[in-house]
Simulated assay, not measured.
Amino acid sequence: MKRGFGSDNHAGVHPKILESIALANIEHAPSYGTDDWTEAAIKEFRKQFGTEAQVFFVFNGTAANVTALRALTRPYQSVFCSDVAHINVDECGAPEQMAGCKLIPLPSRNGKISVEELEKAFIRRGDQHYSQTQVLSLTQPTELGTTYSIEELTGLITWAKSKKLYVHIDGSRLANAAIHLNKSFKEFTTDLGVDVVSFGGTKNGLLMGEAVIFLNKSLAHDFKYIRKQSSQLPSKSRFIACQFTAYFQNDLWKEIAGNSLQRAQELYEAVREIPQITVREKPQSNAVFAKIPSAWVKSLREKYFFYVWDENTFECRWMTSWDTKSEDIQGFAQALKEHVHPPASPK
Rank of each mutant, 00 (worst) to 15 (best):
Q128F: 04
I179C: 01
V55D: 03
Q134H: 06
N286L: 10
M1R: 13
Q265Y: 03
V66P: 01
S237H: 06
V115E: 09
V197Y: 00
I113E: 03
Q140F: 00
L156H: 08
S231T: 11
T147N: 10
D127Q: 05
E255T: 06
R124C: 08
F5Y: 10
K282I: 04
I150G: 07
L136R: 05
D323I: 02
T313F: 06
A264K: 02
G6Y: 15
R317N: 14
D191K: 12
I213P: 07
Y268D: 12
E117Q: 12
N312V: 04
K203C: 04
I21L: 14
E302V: 00
S108I: 07
Q229T: 05
G33Q: 04
Y304W: 13
N182S: 13
Q249R: 13
E116Y: 12
Y304N: 07
T320W: 02
N25H: 11
L215F: 04
A287Y: 03
Q140H: 07
A177C: 06
D36T: 02
S299K: 10
K337W: 00
N110A: 10
T67Y: 03
S82N: 01
E91L: 00
F239H: 08
E311R: 15
D83S: 15
A68T: 11
F45V: 02
T139E: 15
S326Q: 11
K254P: 09
T154F: 00
L106H: 00
Y166S: 15
L267N: 09
E52Q: 09
I123N: 12
E91S: 10
E327L: 02
Y130I: 09
L106E: 08
M208E: 15
G93D: 03
T245G: 07
D328S: 08
D323G: 07
L138A: 06
I240K: 10
W37L: 12
G6Q: 14
V135T: 07
K164N: 15
T324E: 08
G50R: 11
H339A: 10
